[in-house]
Write a protein that binds this DNA or RNA. Structure first.
Length: 428
RNA sequence: GUGAGUGUGGCGAAGGGGUUAACGCACCGGAUUGUGAUUCCGGCAUGCAUGGGUUCGAUUCCCAUCACUCACCCCA
C-alpha cells in the first residue's frame, strides 16, 4: 500500500502555499509596526516544560500531547502550543537581564494528538506573540489590538473579541473556595466531568455544556469569577477595557469565558466569528515565568491558528493571492534555437526577470498554451528566423502584439515593460 | 477517547455479484506552414482505499485495517 501522510497532517501544495506566504507576511508586517521581534524555538521540548507550564490538569497535557522517548531515554514532547517554549527560551537566555520588556512573536507548527476534524489537525500552525516584563493594562490592550488587526488585515469579517478576566492568585483561590462551598452540597447533581472540575478547577464548570450543571450553578448563586475579582484585578480589567475603547477595538465582556490553559491570570480573550470556532485567543500569564524557573515576570500573549484563519476566510468568500505569474516565456520554435533559449533564460533571470520555458518538447501551439497557463506576460520566440536575423520575436500576451527585438536589447526591453508591475509573489 | 457516515481515474461523480467500469471537468495529441479562445476528432482506470473471507465468480456481500467527514469532548 502506498504510504500516506500521517493522520491529521496536510501537504500544502503549490496553489495553496501562496496564501500561507501572504498570511505570514501580514503577520510579520503587522507585528513589525508595533516593534515585535521574531523568536524561533525548538519544535520539541522536554515533556516537563509543558507539564509544568501548560498545567497538568489541562486537556492538552492529560490527553493531547505527542510525547515519546528519544534514544537517550529522555521524555520529549512535540510542542502543543507556543507560549511555554518562548518563556523557557526567555528564561534560559536571560532576556530579562536586558532590562527592557521583550516583545516577541513566532510562527510555526504545533502538535496535538486529537481526532482530526474541520479546522482541527494534529499538526497545525500558529502565529503568536508573547510580551514579557510588563504588568500594566496598556500592554494588554496593545496585544489584543494586534491580535485583532492581524485578522482584519488577513481579510476576515464579522470578528468578535470576547473578553474576560479570570483573576489572580489572590481572587482565584477565594472564588474557588466559594464555588466548592456552594456546589459541594449538590455535587451529585453535576455531571461526571464537573464533579472532577469541582476539585481541580471549578472555574471550568462554567464551560460545561450540560444544561443541568448550569441550572445548579444558577440555583446556588455561584458567582462568576469576574464578579468577585480582587481590587487590583478589577482595576486592571477596567483599565484594559478603557484602553481598548481608546484604540477603537470593539469587544464584548463574556463572563463565562475560560481558557483551556492553566497559566492564565487576569485578562483572557478569544477572537471568533459567528458560526466558527475560535480563530485566535490569548491571555495574561503572570506566574508562568516563575513556574518555569525564571524571576517573577509578568507576561501576556496570544496564539492564532493559521488553518482556521484561512478556513474562515475561504468560507467568507475571501482569498489572499492571485496566481503566480512569469514575466517571460521562452518559446523554442526550432531545436537549433535550444542553446540560445537557455542563454536567454539565464540572462533574463540574471536581471531579475522571471522566466520559464517548455521542457517537454512541445509544439508551438502547446508552448503558447503553457505560457498562457503560467500567466506569462511576454513570449520570446526563438527559431531559425530569429537566429538568422539576431532578433527575437516578442509577443505581448495581453495585447497580442508582436515585435522584433535584438538579442542584446531583449532583457532591457522586457525589464522596461515589466517594471512597476508586481513581480510574482514578492509583494504581499 | 466515544458514536455515526463515506472511500470508484488528477478532480467531480454513475453503476452494481458474472467476460468493453457511464458521463462531466482537467490533462495530452491532432484539424497540412512556427502562435494563446471556441469548435471538431482522438487519447487517458488489466482497475473500483488496503488486507482477508464468502462464492463457480466480487469493484459490488461480510470482517478487519487505514484515511476522510460529522457529532460529543476540547481547542487553534
Amino acid at each position: 500500500m502506498e504510504i500516506q501522510r500521517p493522520r491529521g497532517t496536510a501537504d500544502l501544495l503549490p496553489g495553496t502555499v501562496e496564501a500561507w506566504q501572504v498570511l505570514e507576511r501580514i503577520v510579520r508586517d503587522t507585528l513589525a509596526t508595533a516593534n515585535y521581534q521574531e523568536i524561533r524555538t525548538p519544535v520539541f521540548e522536554h515533556t516537563e516544560l509543558f507539564e509544568r507550564g501548560v498545567g497538568d490538569t489541562t486537556d492538552i497535557v492529560t490527553k493531547e500531547m505527542y510525547t515519546f522517548e528519544d534514544r537517550g531515554g529522555r521524555s520529549v514532547t512535540l510542542r502543543p502550543e507556543g507560549t511555554a517554549g518562548a518563556v523557557r527560551a526567555y528564561v534560559e537566555n536571560k532576556l530579562y537581564g536586558q532590562g527592557n520588556i521583550s516583545k516577541l512573536y513566532y510562527i510555526g507548527p504545533m502538535f496535538r494528538y486529537e481526532k482530526p476534524q474541520k479546522g482541527r489537525f494534529r499538526q497545525f500552525h500558529q502565529y503568536g506573540v508573547e510580551v514579557l516584563g510588563s504588568e500594566g493594562p496598556a500592554i494588554d490592550a496593545e496585544v489584543i489590538h494586534l491580535n485583532l488587526t492581524v485578522l482584519q488585515r488577513i481579510g476576515l469579517k464579522n470578528l468578535q473579541v470576547e473578553l474576560n478576566s479570570v483573576g489572580c492568585s489572590v481572587c482565584r483561590p477565594r472564588h474557588k473556595a466559594q464555588m466548592v462551598a456552594l456546589l459541594t452540597p449538590r455535587r451529585d447533581e453535576l455531571c461526571k466531568e464537573c464533579q472532577e472540575r469541582l476539585e481541580k478547577n471549578p472555574l471550568r464548570i462554567f464551560d460545561c455544556k450540560n444544561e443541568h450543571c448550569h441550572t445548579v450553578l444558577k440555583e446556588v448563586g455561584a458567582p462568576y469569577i469576574t464578579d468577585v475579582l480582587c481590587e487590583d484585578c478589577s482595576e486592571h480589567f477596567q483599565s484594559v477595557q478603557a484602553y481598548l475603547t481608546a484604540m477603537s477595538v470593539p469587544f464584548v465582556v463574556k463572563k463565562d469565558l475560560v481558557r483551556g490553559l492553566d497559566y492564565y491570570t487576569r485578562t483572557a480573550w478569544e477572537v471568533t466569528s459567528p458560526g466558527f470556532t475560535t480563530i485566535a485567543g490569548g491571555g495574561r500569564y503572570n506566574g508562568l515565568v516563575e513556574q518555569v524557573g525564571g524571576p517573577a515576570t509578568a507576561g501576556i500573549g496570544f496564539g492564532g491558528g493559521i488553518e482556521r484563519a484561512l478556513w474562515v476566510l475561504a468560507e467568507q468568500g475571501g482569498s489572499l493571492t492571485d496566481a503566480q505569474t512569469v514575466d517571460a516565456f521562452v518559446a523554442v520554435a526550432d531545436t537549433s534555437a535550444e542553446r540560445t533559449a537557455m542563454a536567454v533564460l539565464a540572462t533574463l533571470r540574471g536581471r531579475g526577470i522571471s522566466a520559464d520555458r517548455d521542457y517537454q518538447g512541445r509544439g508551438m501551439k502547446s508552448q503558447f498554451k503553457l505560457a498562457d497557463r503560467m500567466n506569462a506576460k511576454f513570449v520570446v520566440i526563438l527559431g531559425e528566423a530569429e537566429l538568422a536575423s539576431g532578433k527575437a520575436t516578442v509577443k505581448d500576451l495581453a495585447t497580442g502584439q508582436q515585435e522584433e527585438v535584438p538579442f542584446a536589447e531583449l532583457a532591457s526591453w522586457i525589464e522596461e515593460r515589466v517594471k512597476g508591475a508586481a513581480v510574482g509573489g514578492h509583494e504581499a
